[in-house]
Amino acid sequence: MRTWKVDDVMTQAVVSVPETASYRSLVDLLVSRRFSAVPVVDESQRVTGVVSEADLLRKIEYSGAEEPRLFEGRRRRGERAKARAATAAELMSRPPIVAPVGMPLATAARLMDAEQVKRLPVVDDRGRLVGIVTRGDLLKAHLRPDDEIHRDVTDGVLMPLLGEAADEVTVTVTGGVVTLTGRVALWTMADTAVRLTRQVAGVVTVADSLEFDFDDRYMVAPVPVYGVA
């Protein structure tokens, strides 16, 4: 079964900025292009950080603020430092949260959620910028035509799992909803077919109407008896 990766949906024509980019140029870029963040790269195109709207807003947030307190926390000190920053290198958040080439879409979605970011720079094995993937890009998988999803389910799930018995299963796809009907030999086969179908890119949900000849979920492996000739 083919697993969709960030490479399949990312934008390759990425806008990035050098570490020397000025504060004013960063504001102009994000406002004019309606970006919420932009990756920062070094001379070798390796991603060294990301500058977001939040990073740029520190200058406004701390404008005219009182001097830092003696026991001010590390996070607050870092925010004050960004308020005085003038270049991307000083403003950017680091280390950058990136997606390596080949990362599955599900993994990228979990990473975005865990890190509370809206986009991920995609990097090669040397850390060089090759693309960018957004939350909206991850949703592109659900725009796949039903016939493509049908082909992936039959050729990528049922044939490898069931072999010739795959002909006993009927697959219908409507608006990304997959219905599996028919009969297989074992409960574990039916269960595995449904679970793998859910993982096919673009599948919204699976309607399980599969029947089986034998319920093998409660089978207990024989306990070995030692010392018996």
Score class of each variant (00 low, 15 high):
residue 58 R to V: 04
residue 94 R to L: 04
residue 23 Y to S: 01
residue 5 K to Q: 05
residue 104 P to C: 06
residue 228 V to M: 11
residue 207 A to F: 12
residue 58 R to C: 03
residue 88 A to N: 02
residue 120 L to F: 00
residue 96 P to I: 04
residue 85 A to T: 09
residue 161 L to R: 06
residue 43 E to D: 12
residue 54 A to T: 10
residue 40 V to S: 00
residue 68 P to T: 01
residue 28 D to G: 07
residue 68 P to D: 00
residue 4 W to T: 01
residue 106 A to Q: 11
residue 87 T to Y: 01
residue 54 A to Q: 11
residue 93 S to H: 02
residue 83 A to C: 02
residue 203 V to K: 02
residue 224 P to M: 12
residue 138 L to A: 14
residue 47 V to R: 01
residue 173 V to G: 01
residue 166 A to H: 03
residue 146 D to E: 04
residue 75 R to S: 07
residue 180 L to Q: 09
residue 46 R to V: 12
residue 25 S to Y: 05
residue 141 A to E: 05
residue 152 D to M: 11
residue 217 R to E: 01
residue 136 G to P: 09
residue 191 D to W: 14
residue 110 R to K: 11
residue 128 R to P: 09
residue 34 R to P: 05
residue 140 K to P: 08
residue 181 T to Y: 05
residue 201 A to D: 13
residue 48 T to N: 11
residue 24 R to G: 00
residue 173 V to T: 02
residue 49 G to Y: 07
residue 225 V to I: 15
residue 138 L to I: 13
residue 224 P to S: 14
residue 138 L to V: 15
residue 157 V to D: 03
residue 141 A to M: 05
residue 213 D to M: 14
residue 135 R to I: 01
residue 104 P to Q: 10
residue 55 D to R: 05
residue 168 E to K: 15
residue 44 S to G: 08
residue 220 V to G: 03
residue 197 T to M: 06
residue 129 L to T: 06
residue 42 D to G: 07
residue 107 T to N: 07
residue 81 A to G: 06
residue 102 G to N: 14
residue 172 T to G: 07
residue 37 A to Y: 07
residue 169 V to N: 03
residue 187 W to A: 08
residue 214 F to A: 14
residue 167 D to V: 12
residue 75 R to Q: 11
residue 123 V to L: 08
residue 104 P to S: 05
residue 171 V to S: 11
residue 93 S to A: 07
residue 165 A to N: 10
residue 35 F to C: 07
residue 155 D to C: 06
residue 213 D to F: 14
residue 103 M to T: 15
residue 59 K to Y: 10
residue 223 V to Q: 13
residue 190 A to R: 01
residue 39 P to F: 12
residue 75 R to D: 11
residue 112 M to W: 15
